[in-house]
Each structure stands twice: as structure tokens, then as C-alpha cells.
Simulated assay, not measured.
Amino acid sequence: MAYLVRIGNSQGIRIPKSFIEQADLEGKELKFEVVNGGLFIAPVNEPRKGWAESINKVLVTHG
């Protein structure tokens, strides 16, 4: 079970640790979508994140 908690003028969701572990959400940026009157929470998928830095390292090392 998750609960809404007041944080200043906003509200946050307190999610049990077991759910965070099962969904592999620890330390990740999350996106929220309203789906059929409910809330869908998922990690932001950035499949190419870090590619530019990796390529630059290879070019500097081998260039």
C-alpha cells in the first residue's frame, strides 16, 4: 500500500521499499501518466544516455 503525504504545499507518494526493489526504481527519474483513472509510474527510459561521453572517451584515448 502507498500513501500520499503532505510536503509543504504539495503531496508526495510514500512507496514501500519492496515495491521500489521489485520495479527497480531506486535512484531513477520517474515519469507519471494518468491511465484509466489511475496513476502509472515508470522509470524514464533513456536508452542512449551516456553514449556521447563514452564515444568522446574512446576518441580521446584512441584519437
Rank of each mutant, 00 (worst) to 15 (best):
residue 41 I to N: 02
residue 50 G to E: 09
residue 44 V to D: 00
residue 29 E to P: 05
residue 37 G to W: 12
residue 3 Y to I: 14
residue 20 I to Y: 01
residue 53 E to G: 03
residue 57 K to L: 06
residue 26 E to V: 02
residue 60 V to Q: 12
residue 44 V to K: 05
residue 29 E to Y: 08
residue 52 A to P: 01
residue 38 G to Y: 08
residue 22 Q to V: 04
residue 37 G to I: 04
residue 23 A to F: 13
residue 20 I to F: 03
residue 5 V to M: 07
residue 55 I to E: 10
residue 59 L to N: 14
residue 19 F to V: 15
residue 57 K to M: 05
residue 27 G to H: 05
residue 63 G to H: 05
residue 24 D to F: 04
residue 48 R to P: 01
residue 54 S to Q: 13
residue 16 P to Y: 13
residue 23 A to D: 04
residue 24 D to M: 01
residue 54 S to V: 00
residue 47 P to C: 12
residue 32 F to D: 07
residue 50 G to P: 08
residue 63 G to F: 06
residue 48 R to W: 09
residue 51 W to C: 04
residue 42 A to M: 11
residue 39 L to N: 02
residue 18 S to V: 06
residue 60 V to H: 11
residue 8 G to H: 02
residue 50 G to K: 03
residue 35 V to Y: 06
residue 3 Y to W: 11
residue 1 M to K: 06
residue 34 V to F: 06
residue 56 N to Y: 07
residue 12 G to W: 04
residue 11 Q to M: 14
residue 57 K to Y: 05
residue 56 N to I: 06
residue 42 A to E: 13
residue 48 R to D: 13
residue 12 G to I: 05
residue 22 Q to G: 07
residue 37 G to K: 08
residue 60 V to E: 15
residue 50 G to R: 03
residue 57 K to I: 02
residue 56 N to K: 14
residue 51 W to K: 08
residue 20 I to E: 02
residue 44 V to P: 00
residue 20 I to W: 03
residue 23 A to V: 01
residue 60 V to A: 15
residue 20 I to V: 13
residue 61 T to G: 02
residue 44 V to T: 03
residue 30 L to W: 15
residue 56 N to W: 05
residue 34 V to T: 10
residue 24 D to H: 07
residue 63 G to Y: 07
residue 19 F to I: 15
residue 5 V to N: 06
residue 59 L to P: 05
residue 50 G to A: 07
residue 2 A to M: 13
residue 45 N to R: 11
residue 43 P to W: 00
residue 22 Q to C: 03
residue 45 N to S: 12
residue 60 V to R: 13
residue 34 V to I: 14
residue 29 E to T: 09
residue 51 W to H: 04
residue 12 G to P: 01
residue 10 S to W: 09
residue 44 V to Q: 01
residue 39 L to E: 04
residue 54 S to Y: 04
residue 52 A to I: 10
residue 57 K to V: 04
residue 53 E to H: 03
residue 27 G to S: 06
residue 47 P to W: 11
residue 55 I to D: 03
residue 29 E to I: 02
residue 49 K to F: 09
residue 33 E to M: 05
residue 28 K to F: 06
residue 52 A to L: 14
residue 2 A to Q: 09
residue 43 P to T: 00
residue 7 I to H: 02
residue 50 G to T: 08
residue 15 I to K: 00
residue 17 K to R: 14
residue 40 F to E: 14
residue 38 G to R: 10
residue 53 E to L: 04
residue 51 W to V: 15
residue 42 A to R: 04
residue 49 K to N: 07
residue 53 E to I: 00
residue 26 E to S: 02
